[in-house]
Computed example of a mutant assay.
Amino acid sequence: MTHNPSEVRTIRKVLVANRGEIAVRVIRTCRELGIATVAVYSDPDRTAPHVRLADEAYRIGPAASAESYLSVDRILAVAAESGADAVHPGYGFLSENAAFAEACSRAGIVFVGPPSEAIRSMGDKTAARALMEEAGVPMAPGTLDAVEGEQEAADAAAGIGFPVLIKAAAGGGGKGMRIVESPDEFVSAFNAARREAQAAFGDGRVFIEKYITEPRHIEFQIFADMHGGAVHLFERECSIQRRHQKVVEEAPSSVLDEELRARMGESAVAAARSCGYVGAGTVEFL
Rank of each mutant, 00 (worst) to 15 (best):
51 V>R: 12
253 S>E: 03
30 C>H: 10
125 K>E: 12
269 V>S: 01
38 V>C: 09
26 V>I: 15
242 R>Q: 06
222 I>H: 03
27 I>W: 02
179 I>G: 04
40 V>M: 02
227 H>V: 07
116 S>K: 07
157 A>H: 00
195 R>E: 11
3 H>Q: 08
171 G>L: 14
242 R>A: 05
114 P>N: 15
255 V>R: 08
225 D>I: 13
43 D>L: 13
19 R>F: 06
151 Q>F: 00
104 C>T: 08
71 S>R: 13
1 M>D: 05
27 I>H: 08
213 T>G: 01
222 I>R: 02
223 F>R: 09
191 N>G: 09
248 V>G: 06
98 A>G: 11
194 R>W: 00
283 V>T: 07
261 R>Q: 00
40 V>I: 15
103 A>Y: 02
258 E>V: 13
97 N>M: 14
39 A>C: 00
219 E>V: 15
180 V>F: 00
252 P>F: 03
182 S>M: 02
147 V>S: 03
260 L>N: 04
110 V>E: 04
275 C>W: 01
81 E>M: 13
177 M>G: 09
92 G>W: 05
182 S>P: 00
215 P>Q: 07
244 H>P: 05
245 Q>K: 14
238 C>H: 03
192 A>K: 15
50 H>M: 14
118 A>T: 10
26 V>A: 10
146 A>L: 03
89 P>F: 03
108 G>P: 02
143 T>M: 04
277 Y>A: 11
112 V>D: 09
9 R>H: 13
46 R>E: 08
164 V>P: 00
7 E>D: 11
13 K>I: 08
234 F>T: 07
47 T>D: 07
180 V>K: 03
85 D>E: 04
16 V>L: 04
188 S>L: 06
181 E>R: 14
15 L>R: 14
158 A>V: 12
219 E>G: 11
243 R>C: 11
256 L>P: 03
132 M>F: 08
196 E>A: 14
73 D>S: 15
123 G>S: 12
169 A>V: 14
203 D>W: 14
114 P>T: 15
48 A>Q: 01
204 G>H: 06
93 F>Q: 05
30 C>P: 03
202 G>V: 15
235 E>D: 09
41 Y>F: 15
251 A>P: 02
124 D>C: 13
180 V>T: 04
169 A>G: 04
151 Q>H: 08
249 E>S: 08
204 G>T: 12
66 A>P: 03
200 A>T: 13
127 A>G: 01
173 G>F: 10
74 R>T: 08
